[in-house]
Amino acid sequence: MDRIYEIAKELTAIPGVSGDESRSFPYLEKTLAGKFDDFGFTPVGSYFGIRKSKKKNAKTVLFDAHLDTIGFIVTKICDGGFLKVMMVGRTAEKNLSASEVWIYGKRTIPGVFASKPPHLQEPGESEKKLSIDDLSIDTGLSKEELEEIVRVGTFVGFKADCEKLSDNVIVSPSFDDRICAACILRALELVEGEDIGVNAAFQFSAGEETGYKGAMTTAYRIAPDYAIVLDVCNAYVPGAREARKAVQIGKGCSLSYSAQTNRELTEFTRTLAEKNGIALQFLAEPGATGTNSNVIQTGHGGVPTVLLSIPLKNMHTANEVADLRDCEETAKLLAEFLRSIGSYQGVEE
């Protein structure tokens, strides 16, 4: 688990608001060099790697996690050095007052979401709805200084560390979906040097939060035979609907049943987990899953796809909370999947 935490800490330290994913390429180039036969970035900003099997006509298994995170984009530079922003993806606006951000301009500078002082608030104002339009970001610079660094379109992201709350429970602003990328890298480490008989590929897709562009195009290039999409899912939190108790943090990774994933391959994955004593939870998502699984499953003439999710609390906030044990189990399951997919029978006629 230490290893996954280490990878997660490194990955979450690199910014990557949807549309600005390339910032992690140098890290990936450096860490993955020599471990893959083919790797690199794609024109839309995804990153991929393929480790080829010596076996002739080996099948290709693709693991997908998205590289982008939610965040903000500058819409106006105001007097006094304040910025107006819009959301990229959607966060809970109520959490933003007096929270810290990084502004990824010509150079990266810190900022603080302003909060209205009490003497300027109407009575009862703090009980009312807060929207991003009510807020601005304080940069501590003059408008002129700011215009040298930032322009309309500059990305802004949460400023908060990845740290532990307890032995197993960890928090970061970008576990969606960097924690899944960490699981994939860990799984590929687990099978390193093994003759698994399949080509093992991964893609860290650009633009999931804004419409799946990276997943579609990168999977097209890799042309996998099977795919597992890894994303995060909303874990049960107090106050949520009773049925949400189906998936909780600390109880294993979640396997989705959906019409947008492949039922046979999903059952194969479930059986594999059971056989290996790997904890799993189950999520019913009949229609759209809101993940890359939609586009990977239907791309390239159809790719049987499974959706696994790391349960997460406070998704799309600066404090996404996950359990390291779920991540470790997920990496194990992915490794087992690579070792066992050769025995998969496919859809019955």
């Binding site: 959607r90 966060t91 809970a92 606006e93 109520k94 959490n95 703090s126 009980e127 009312k128 709805k129 807060l130 929207s131 740290e163 709350l165 928090v171 909303n234 939190v237 107090p238 106050g239 949520a240 609907r241 949400r244 997460l312 609390k313 406070n314 998704m315 799309h316 906030t317 404090n319 909370v321």
Partner: peptide, 21 residues
């Protein structure tokens, strides 16, 4: 010890909850 003030994800908030603390 560090604690996180929990915030339900935006996807699972009810219409009334959105934006309100």
């Amino acid at each position: 010890l560090v604690g996180v003030v929990a915030s339900k994800a935006i996807h699972i908030q009810t219409k009334e909850e959105i934006g309100k603390c």
